[in-house]
Design a protein around this nucleic acid. Sequence first.
DNA 1: GCCAACGTTGGC
DNA 2: GCCAACGTTGGC
Length: 156
Amino acid sequence: MAKNYWLIKSEPSTFSFDDLKKRTGQTEGWDGVRNYQARNFMRYHMQVGDLALFYHSSCAEPGVAGIVEITKSAYPDPSSWDAKSPYFDSKSSPDNPRWFMVNVTFKSEFKNFVSLKALKENDNLKDMKVVQKGQRLSIQPVTREEFSLVSKMGGL
DNA sequence: GCCAACGTTGGC
DNA sequence: GCCAACGTTGGC
Protein backbone atom coordinates (compact mmCIF):
# COMPACT_ATOMS: atom_id res chain seq x y z
CA MET A 1 0.00 0.00 0.00
CA ALA A 2 1.38 3.31 -1.05
CA LYS A 3 2.12 5.75 1.67
CA ASN A 4 0.11 8.96 1.75
CA TYR A 5 1.33 12.43 2.53
CA TRP A 6 -0.53 15.22 4.29
CA LEU A 7 -0.40 18.71 5.62
CA ILE A 8 -2.06 19.32 8.97
CA LYS A 9 -2.67 22.76 10.43
CA SER A 10 -2.48 23.85 14.00
CA GLU A 11 -2.49 27.23 15.65
CA PRO A 12 0.75 27.36 17.63
CA SER A 13 -0.96 29.36 20.37
CA THR A 14 -3.17 26.31 20.89
CA PHE A 15 -0.76 23.52 20.04
CA SER A 16 2.62 24.00 18.40
CA PHE A 17 5.14 21.64 16.88
CA ASP A 18 7.32 22.34 19.88
CA ASP A 19 4.51 21.30 22.20
CA LEU A 20 4.34 17.98 20.39
CA LYS A 21 8.10 17.52 20.62
CA LYS A 22 8.04 18.07 24.37
CA ARG A 23 5.05 15.88 25.03
CA THR A 24 5.61 12.56 26.76
CA GLY A 25 5.73 9.99 24.00
CA GLN A 26 5.74 12.88 21.52
CA THR A 27 2.24 11.85 20.51
CA GLU A 28 -0.97 13.81 20.35
CA GLY A 29 -4.54 12.88 19.53
CA TRP A 30 -5.56 15.14 16.68
CA ASP A 31 -8.98 16.02 18.07
CA GLY A 32 -11.26 18.94 17.37
CA VAL A 33 -11.48 18.61 13.59
CA ARG A 34 -15.03 19.73 12.75
CA ASN A 35 -15.05 19.82 9.00
CA TYR A 36 -16.41 16.96 6.94
CA GLN A 37 -13.81 17.07 4.22
CA ALA A 38 -10.98 17.05 6.73
CA ARG A 39 -12.71 14.35 8.72
CA ASN A 40 -13.10 12.16 5.67
CA PHE A 41 -9.41 12.41 4.87
CA MET A 42 -8.66 11.15 8.37
CA ARG A 43 -11.36 8.57 8.41
CA TYR A 44 -10.95 7.00 5.01
CA HIS A 45 -7.49 7.81 3.78
CA MET A 46 -5.00 8.33 6.59
CA GLN A 47 -3.07 5.21 7.45
CA VAL A 48 -0.58 4.33 10.12
CA GLY A 49 2.82 5.18 8.71
CA ASP A 50 1.63 8.13 6.63
CA LEU A 51 3.66 11.30 7.06
CA ALA A 52 2.39 14.84 7.46
CA LEU A 53 3.80 18.33 7.33
CA PHE A 54 3.02 20.14 10.57
CA TYR A 55 1.82 23.60 9.60
CA HIS A 56 1.45 26.61 11.87
CA SER A 57 -1.50 28.81 11.00
CA SER A 58 -2.94 32.07 12.35
CA CYS A 59 0.33 33.29 13.76
CA ALA A 60 3.09 35.80 13.12
CA GLU A 61 4.93 33.49 10.75
CA PRO A 62 2.77 30.80 9.20
CA GLY A 63 4.61 27.82 7.74
CA VAL A 64 5.82 24.26 8.17
CA ALA A 65 7.82 23.40 11.28
CA GLY A 66 8.49 19.71 10.77
CA ILE A 67 7.17 16.26 10.09
CA VAL A 68 4.89 13.95 12.03
CA GLU A 69 3.87 10.36 11.49
CA ILE A 70 0.35 9.01 11.74
CA THR A 71 0.56 6.41 14.50
CA LYS A 72 -3.10 5.56 14.99
CA SER A 73 -5.78 5.52 12.34
CA ALA A 74 -9.18 7.15 12.72
CA TYR A 75 -11.22 6.59 15.88
CA PRO A 76 -14.17 8.51 17.36
CA ASP A 77 -13.27 11.89 18.85
CA PRO A 78 -14.61 11.88 22.44
CA SER A 79 -14.42 15.66 22.72
CA SER A 80 -17.38 15.77 20.33
CA TRP A 81 -19.76 14.52 23.04
CA ASP A 82 -18.08 16.28 25.95
CA ALA A 83 -20.40 19.15 26.82
CA LYS A 84 -17.50 20.99 28.45
CA SER A 85 -15.28 20.81 25.39
CA PRO A 86 -15.03 23.73 22.99
CA TYR A 87 -15.40 21.09 20.26
CA PHE A 88 -18.71 19.78 21.61
CA ASP A 89 -21.31 18.82 19.02
CA SER A 90 -24.73 17.82 20.32
CA LYS A 91 -25.30 15.66 17.26
CA SER A 92 -22.38 13.39 18.08
CA SER A 93 -22.53 10.60 20.66
CA PRO A 94 -20.53 7.50 21.65
CA ASP A 95 -23.18 5.35 19.95
CA ASN A 96 -23.23 7.47 16.85
CA PRO A 97 -19.98 9.43 16.60
CA ARG A 98 -19.91 12.15 14.01
CA TRP A 99 -16.29 13.22 14.37
CA PHE A 100 -13.05 11.28 14.24
CA MET A 101 -9.43 11.79 15.13
CA VAL A 102 -6.05 10.18 14.56
CA ASN A 103 -2.85 10.13 16.58
CA VAL A 104 0.24 11.88 15.33
CA THR A 105 3.78 11.40 16.58
CA PHE A 106 6.81 13.66 16.27
CA LYS A 107 9.06 12.45 13.48
CA SER A 108 11.60 15.14 12.64
CA GLU A 109 12.05 18.82 13.08
CA PHE A 110 13.07 21.04 10.19
CA LYS A 111 16.49 22.62 10.47
CA ASN A 112 14.98 25.69 8.85
CA PHE A 113 11.35 26.64 9.28
CA VAL A 114 9.65 26.74 5.87
CA SER A 115 7.45 29.81 5.82
CA LEU A 116 4.28 30.17 3.83
CA LYS A 117 6.11 32.89 1.92
CA ALA A 118 8.80 30.42 0.89
CA LEU A 119 6.17 27.91 -0.19
CA LYS A 120 4.49 30.55 -2.30
CA GLU A 121 7.75 31.57 -3.91
CA ASN A 122 8.51 28.05 -5.09
CA ASP A 123 6.99 27.45 -8.49
CA ASN A 124 6.99 23.69 -8.00
CA LEU A 125 4.61 24.07 -5.08
CA LYS A 126 2.02 26.25 -6.76
CA ASP A 127 -0.54 23.44 -6.77
CA MET A 128 -0.36 22.93 -3.02
CA LYS A 129 -3.68 23.79 -1.45
CA VAL A 130 -2.08 25.69 1.38
CA VAL A 131 -0.66 28.36 -0.94
CA GLN A 132 -3.97 28.90 -2.70
CA LYS A 133 -6.20 31.76 -1.72
CA GLY A 134 -9.15 30.94 0.46
CA GLN A 135 -8.05 27.40 1.13
CA ARG A 136 -8.96 26.72 4.74
CA LEU A 137 -8.96 22.95 5.02
CA SER A 138 -7.13 21.94 8.16
CA ILE A 139 -6.10 18.58 6.72
CA GLN A 140 -4.91 18.48 3.14
CA PRO A 141 -3.35 15.79 0.99
CA VAL A 142 0.01 16.64 -0.56
CA THR A 143 1.86 14.73 -3.24
CA ARG A 144 5.00 12.74 -2.59
CA GLU A 145 6.92 15.24 -4.71
CA GLU A 146 5.60 18.21 -2.76
CA PHE A 147 6.34 16.47 0.51
CA SER A 148 9.92 15.68 -0.38
CA LEU A 149 10.55 19.14 -1.77
CA VAL A 150 9.24 20.85 1.36
CA SER A 151 11.35 18.48 3.47
CA LYS A 152 14.37 19.46 1.45
CA MET A 153 13.59 23.14 1.92
CA GLY A 154 13.40 22.41 5.63
CA GLY A 155 16.93 21.05 5.54
CA LEU A 156 16.15 17.36 5.82
C1' DG B 1 -8.36 44.28 13.80
C1' DC B 2 -9.83 43.80 8.99
C1' DC B 3 -11.84 41.33 5.54
C1' DA B 4 -12.22 37.82 1.81
C1' DA B 5 -13.38 33.18 1.20
C1' DC B 6 -15.60 29.41 2.50
C1' DG B 7 -18.80 26.10 5.14
C1' DT B 8 -23.01 25.48 7.66
C1' DT B 9 -27.59 26.50 9.09
C1' DG B 10 -32.29 27.13 8.69
C1' DG B 11 -36.45 29.37 6.74
C1' DC B 12 -39.16 28.91 2.94
C1' DG C 1 -33.55 22.14 -2.79
C1' DC C 2 -32.49 27.06 -2.86
C1' DC C 3 -30.11 30.70 -0.91
C1' DA C 4 -29.45 34.43 2.49
C1' DA C 5 -27.53 35.00 6.83
C1' DC C 6 -24.27 33.85 9.82
C1' DG C 7 -19.94 31.93 11.81
C1' DT C 8 -15.16 30.61 11.14
C1' DT C 9 -10.64 30.55 9.12
C1' DG C 10 -6.47 32.59 8.41
C1' DG C 11 -3.34 35.82 5.94
C1' DC C 12 -2.14 40.33 6.23
